[in-house]
Simulated scan of single mutants.
Amino acid sequence: MLIPRKIPIDEIYVPAARRKTLHPETVRLIAESIVENGQQTPIQVRHDGKRYVLIEGLHRLEALKWLGETTIDSYLVQARRH
């Protein structure tokens, strides 16, 4: 069972390929929802030894940045080895 933990937003690295999928209108809508209801679903990150790497939740991450938050609820997941 995954347990959410708060991690600093500034320690999260977003890969370039993932950044290309960002939609500002979606960020705005999610930010409005977070103001009204709080963060309902944690993002998913993996730790690469130095930083957290975003796996899932780009729009939630950007919405919380936009709202001025410094931490985010996250699930720490293990990277799959290929």
Results as ranks from 00 to 15, higher is better:
Lys65His: 10
Lys50Thr: 08
Leu58Cys: 05
Thr41Phe: 08
Val77Leu: 07
Ile72Gly: 03
Thr21Cys: 07
Glu25Ile: 08
Val53His: 04
Ala16Pro: 13
Ala16Asn: 10
Val77Met: 11
Arg60Lys: 12
Val14Glu: 05
Asp48Asn: 11
Val14Phe: 01
Leu76Ile: 15
Ile9Lys: 03
Ala16Ser: 12
Ile7Phe: 11
Ala31Tyr: 01
Lys65Asp: 09
Asp73Gln: 09
Ser74Val: 14
Ala63Arg: 00
Glu69Phe: 13
Ile30Leu: 14
Leu22Asn: 10
Asp10Pro: 00
His23Phe: 08
Gly68Arg: 03
Leu67Asn: 10
Val45Pro: 00
Tyr75Leu: 08
His82Pro: 13
Arg81Asn: 07
Pro24Gln: 11
Val27Cys: 11
Val45Gly: 01
Val53Cys: 11
His23Ala: 11
Thr21Leu: 15
Trp66Asp: 15
Asn37Ile: 00
His23Trp: 02
Gly57Lys: 01
Gly57Ala: 04
Pro8Arg: 15
Pro8Lys: 04
Gly38Tyr: 00
Arg80Asn: 01
Thr71Tyr: 05
Ala17Arg: 11
Ile43Met: 06
Glu25His: 05
Arg5Pro: 04
Leu54Ser: 11
Leu54Gln: 10
Ile3Ala: 13
His59Trp: 09
Gln44Ser: 13
Gln40Thr: 15
Thr26Leu: 12
Pro42Ala: 07
Gln39Ser: 08
Arg18Tyr: 07
Thr70Lys: 15
Met1Gln: 09
Ile55Ser: 01
His23Pro: 00
Glu69Val: 00
Gly38Glu: 01
Ser74His: 09
Arg5Asp: 06
Ser74Pro: 04
Glu56Gly: 06
Asn37Leu: 11
